[in-house]
């Protein structure tokens, strides 16, 4: 995301123009009939039959072929092959590219299963965790997080870590986190040291 080449800039300029020249939506039904209440008036919203059923896989990456074919061993021993395409979104603490995916990483992948059993991924979340924790220590660059009776290190990553307090908008100011609070930590597990890079810490009242 930080390596912006000339061609990337050209493409972005083009896409920016497309978005700015596109339809504008301001909390009203600007693009066709969209009425959430009407949608829920039916006992259950109908599902779109056009879409083939999605496949899901999880596990640890055991090998990477050609930078885009991930060999994954599932937590119950099953084997998956996950194909990253130029339409696949990849999350690893933030939206990133296939170059950041490494052997030994854990993943969740959603996509379509091809006839040969490979899953063509729509979205891949690498090392993502969403943990129900208790704040047990606060440092300048880390939080100690009580999880399942043990303690995890939650690393605060400048420019990446955000906080949400009692459902308010996300902020990069983590100074409202208090000792003893229950929190939900969305982050990226670090296989090399077992810590978690915090993407978002959500605390309640």
């Amino acid at each position: 995301m930080n390596r912006t080449t000339d061609s990337t800039l050209d493409r972005r300029r083009f896409l920016s123009a497309s978005a700015l020249g596109g339809a504008t939506v301001v909390g009203a039904t600007a693009l066709g009939a969209v009425d959430p209440d009407a949608a829920f008036a039916a006992p259950t919203p109908p599902l779109d039959p056009a879409v083939a059923e999605t496949s899901f896989a999880e596990g640890l990456i055991t090998g990477i072929d050609g930078g885009t074919l991930l060999h994954v061993k599932g937590s119950y021993g099953e084997q998956h092959r996950i194909q990253l395409t130029n339409a696949t979104s990849i999350w690893k603490l933030h939206p990133t590219t296939a170059e950041d995916v490494e052997t030994g990483d854990g993943l969740y992948a959603r996509g379509l299963e091809m006839p040969d059993g490979t899953i063509a991924a729509d979205a891949v979340w690498v090392n993502i965790v969403n943990l129900d924790v208790t704040v047990r220590g606060i440092g300048k660059d880390r939080l100690a997080l009580g999880y399942h009776g043990g303690e995890l290190i939650g690393r605060i990553v400048p420019g990446r870590s955000t906080a949400s307090y009692a459902g308010a908008a996300l902020t990069d100011d983590l100074s409202g986190v208090r000792m003893g609070q229950h929190a939900l930590v969305l982050g990226a597990w670090r296989p090399k040291d077992g810590a978690v890079d915090i993407a978002r810490i959500t605390v309640g009242h």
């Binding site: 999605t54 899901f56 999880e58 999350w91 969740y108 979205a123 939900l184 969305l186 959500t202």
Partner: peptide, 14 residues
């Protein structure tokens, strides 16, 4: 994750 990822992005959290 299997269920949540079908209705929203895992990175949204909630």
């Amino acid at each position: 994750p299997a269920a949540y990822s079908q209705i929203a992005s895992l990175s949204s959290g909630k």
